[in-house]
Computed example of a mutant assay.
Amino acid sequence: MSNQGCEIKSIREDLIAEVTKKMSKDSTYHDISNLFKLLGDYNRIRILCALSYQELCVCELSLLLDMSQSAISHQLRLLRHKDIVKFRKENKQTFYSLQNDEIISIIRKANEYGF
């Protein structure tokens, strides 16, 4: 059976220093991890994909995705809190759209890779 670790302990300190300089702060990796946790929800992905095609209100999203309005509102609140979606009010309706289209490119790229 082959061991996947190093057989000898030889540290290339210059290489470690070079990579350390290039890496981001730990807080950046926490933020990225939290983004992927947020995107790890089936319904949030569906909401984002729907909003990538058209600005929609909660009642329209509810019908489109066969979810309750309260469930949609809850998911939108989480996405709004992370500045992934934005909203605007018009009379008594609230319309939602993507804050930044880059989030959809991540989702579409994952779809291309067959995840």
Rank of each mutant, 00 (worst) to 15 (best):
T28R: 13
K86T: 04
K82W: 03
L65E: 03
K25A: 10
S73G: 07
I45V: 14
G5C: 09
G114F: 00
V85K: 02
I104P: 00
Q69T: 14
I16T: 06
A50L: 05
Q54W: 10
I45T: 04
R44W: 03
I107C: 00
Y96L: 12
N91L: 15
I103H: 00
E18R: 07
I32H: 08
K9I: 14
I107E: 00
L15R: 12
E60C: 12
K82L: 05
R46H: 08
L64P: 01
R80G: 03
D26W: 11
K82N: 03
E13P: 03
R108W: 08
L38M: 05
R12D: 15
C57D: 06
R77C: 08
I16N: 07
I32V: 14
D101L: 14
L78G: 01
L61F: 00
N3F: 11
D101R: 15
Q93R: 15
N100T: 13
H74M: 09
N100P: 06
H30W: 13
D101C: 13
A50P: 04
V58I: 15
R46M: 09
R46I: 05
Y53R: 13
C57G: 06
I103L: 06
K9C: 13
R77I: 11
Q54Y: 14
R108M: 05
L61H: 02
F87W: 09
I8Q: 13
S73E: 04
L39Q: 02
K9P: 07
D83K: 06
R12T: 11
N34A: 08
H74D: 05
Y42R: 15
F87D: 02
M67Q: 05
I107G: 00
R80C: 05
R46E: 08
T20E: 06
Y113P: 01
I103N: 01
E55A: 15
S97H: 14
R108D: 04
S62W: 03
M67K: 02
S62D: 08
D31L: 04
I11G: 05
I45K: 08
Y29M: 03
G5Y: 11
E60L: 10
Q54A: 13
M23H: 09
